[in-house]
C-alpha cells in the first residue's frame, strides 16, 4: 500500500504544479491580471481602513463614499474572475481528461484503508469502483482529492498566487461579512 499512496501523493504534487504553471502562463504573468490584482488589493485595504475608521458613524457622506468604493471593488473583482475564468476552463478540461486516465489505471484497486468509517455521502467517493461492502477500503479518487485539497492550496500560497486575505474578505468569502453590510 505504501507504493500506491506515495504514488498518489506524487501525482497530486505534479498536477498541482502543472496546474499552477499553466495558470501562470495563461493568467498570472499577463499585464491585465497583475494590474487588476494590485488594484483590487489596494482598494480592499483602503476600504477596510475606511470601514474601521468610520464603521459606526452615521455620517451620510462617509457612507456614500464607502458604498461607491465597494461598488468599484466589486466591478474589479468581477473583471478579475473573468480574466481567470477562461484559462480555468481550459485547465479544468485538461485535468478532467487526466483524472479519468488515472481513474482507469487505479480502477478497482484498494489504495488505502481508512482509519474511520466514512459517512454515507462520502462513501460514493471513497468506495468508487471498488467491489464489496467494506467501506473502510479507500479508492484512488478520495485520496487524490484530499491530497489536492492540501497540496494545491499550500503550493499556491508558497508561490504567492493565493488571493490575499483582505481581498477575499472584502469580496465576501463563504464566511465573510456580506458586502451590503453598511447599507
Amino acid at each position: 500500500m505504501w507504493a500506491d499512496t506515495i504514488l498518489i501523493v506524487f501525482i497530486s504534487v505534479c498536477t498541482a504544479l502543472l496546474g499552477e504553471g499553466l495558470t501562470w502562463l495563461m493568467v498570472y504573468r499577463t499585464e491585465k491580471y497583475q494590474k487588476l490584482k494590485t488594484e483590487v488589493e489596494r482598494q480592499s485595504k483602503r476600504l477596510e481602513k475606511r470601514k474601521e475608521a468610520h464603521g459606526d458613524s452615521l455620517d451620510k457622506q462617509h457612507k456614500k463614499k464607502i458604498e461607491r468604493e465597494e461598488e468599484k471593488l466589486k466591478n474589479n473583482n468581477r473583471d478579475l474572475s473573468l480574466v481567470k475564468m477562461k484559462s480555468m476552463f481550459a485547465i479544468g478540461f485538461a485535468f478532467t481528461a487526466l483524472l479519468s486516465m488515472f481513474n482507469s489505471i487505479f480502477d478497482g484497486r484498494i489504495v488505502a484503508r481508512l482509519p474511520f468509517f466514512p459517512i454515507s455521502w462520502i462513501q460514493g467517493l471513497s468506495h468508487r469502483n471498488l467491489p464489496g461492502d467494506d467501506y473502510t477500503e479507500c479508492s484512488f479518487l478520495f485520496l487524490y482529492i484530499l491530497c489536492t485539497m492540501s497540496i494545491r492550496q499550500n503550493i499556491q500560497k508558497l508561490l504567492g498566487f493565493a488571493p490575499s486575505r483582505t481581498a477575499s474578505k472584502q469580496s465576501g468569502g463563504l464566511f465573510g461579512p456580506p458586502p451590503q453590510q453598511l447599507r
Binding site: M1, W2, T5, V9, A112, R113, P115, L146, C147, M149
Partner: peptide, 21 residues
C-alpha cells in the same frame, strides 16, 4: 480546512502503510 486535509492524508497513508501491508 487545508490543515484538516493534510491531516487526513498523512493519517490515512501512515495508518494503511503501517497496519495493512
Amino acid at each position: 480546512m487545508t490543515s484538516f486535509a493534510g491531516f487526513l492524508v498523512t493519517w490515512i497513508i501512515i495508518y494503511s502503510g503501517m497496519h495493512f501491508d
